[in-house]
Computed example of a mutant assay.
Amino acid sequence: MKLKIYLSLTLLVAVLSFAQEKKTEKPTFNQELATSLGADKYGMKPYTIVMLTTGTTKVDDKAKMGELMKGHMTNIGKLADEGKIVVAGPFMEQNKENYRGMFIFNTKSKEEAEQWVKTDPAVQAGIFGYEILPWYGSAALPLYLKYHGEISKENP
């Protein structure tokens, strides 16, 4: 019995020390990847965030609103496929700023981000307004899209 307990404790200590070593190991720097993602020496780069706000237009016709939202989602997919949108999504709760959702665009140019957001049918119709903000984040952010398709069973 003592032998089993001793072996179990030894195995547990070995597993925990291996796990601890793995946590503190620094990944090897990959210059090729950093360059391909446009990373600076900190692994970061500038982006532009667009905060979608409640627009001035109200659409009561459910079919028309459905058509606009379908166009909105199609446009997001198109911009993501083109590498322009890195992140997009709605906010889960109403907020005092009337933010409805956000895009993180793969550009540091506010003008370019504005051109891209204006391709959205819901923005064109006035359902959404927007605010544009510069942002600095991980250059690896666009890589999450590569894996998103593997974890989503359905698209909205």
Rank of each mutant, 00 (worst) to 15 (best):
L52I: 03
K2V: 11
L141Y: 12
V15A: 15
L133Y: 14
P134D: 04
G38F: 07
K96V: 06
E154K: 05
A88K: 09
E25M: 14
S152M: 15
L16F: 14
N30K: 10
K41A: 07
L143S: 00
M73T: 09
K62F: 07
E114D: 10
V13R: 00
G77P: 10
E114W: 05
I104G: 03
Q31G: 05
M44R: 11
M51R: 03
F29V: 14
F18Y: 14
T35A: 11
L33K: 08
Q124V: 09
V50N: 02
P90G: 10
W135D: 10
Y47T: 08
E114S: 00
L3I: 07
L7D: 02
K110D: 02
S138F: 06
K146Y: 05
K70T: 13
Q124R: 11
G66W: 05
L68E: 01
Q20W: 15
F105A: 00
I151K: 05
T53D: 01
K146V: 11
E154L: 04
A63Q: 06
L145F: 03
S152N: 13
D120G: 12
K146G: 01
K118W: 00
F128K: 06
I49A: 13
F103Y: 15
S138R: 01
I76L: 06
L11G: 13
E111I: 02
F18S: 07
P90W: 15
V15C: 12
W135I: 09
G83T: 04
K153C: 01
F18D: 10
L145Q: 12
I127F: 12
I104V: 15
E25L: 14
K110Y: 02
E114M: 10
K84W: 04
A34F: 09
F128R: 08
E93M: 11
A139T: 02
N30F: 10
M44K: 10
Y99I: 09
G71Y: 09
S8Y: 05
T57W: 02
P134S: 13
T56C: 00
L3V: 13
L79S: 00
P46S: 10
F105V: 00
I151L: 08
I76C: 03
S17I: 12
L52T: 02
M44D: 04
L3M: 10
T53F: 05
G71I: 14
I76E: 09
L145P: 01
K110Q: 06
S17D: 03
F29P: 07
T54L: 06
P46W: 03
F18P: 03
M69E: 09
M102W: 04
Y144F: 06
I104F: 06
A139N: 00
E150N: 13
E112P: 08
E82R: 00
I127D: 01
T10C: 09
V86L: 01
A125Q: 11
M1G: 15
E97V: 03
A140R: 12
Y144H: 09
Y6S: 14
Y99T: 03
K146C: 08
N75D: 05
F29E: 13
Y6V: 12
K58Y: 09
A113K: 00
M73I: 14
K108V: 01
I127L: 15
L145E: 04
A122M: 05
V59Q: 06
T10I: 09
S152R: 13
E93N: 05
E114A: 04
E150K: 09
W135S: 15
A80E: 10
T74M: 10
L3G: 01
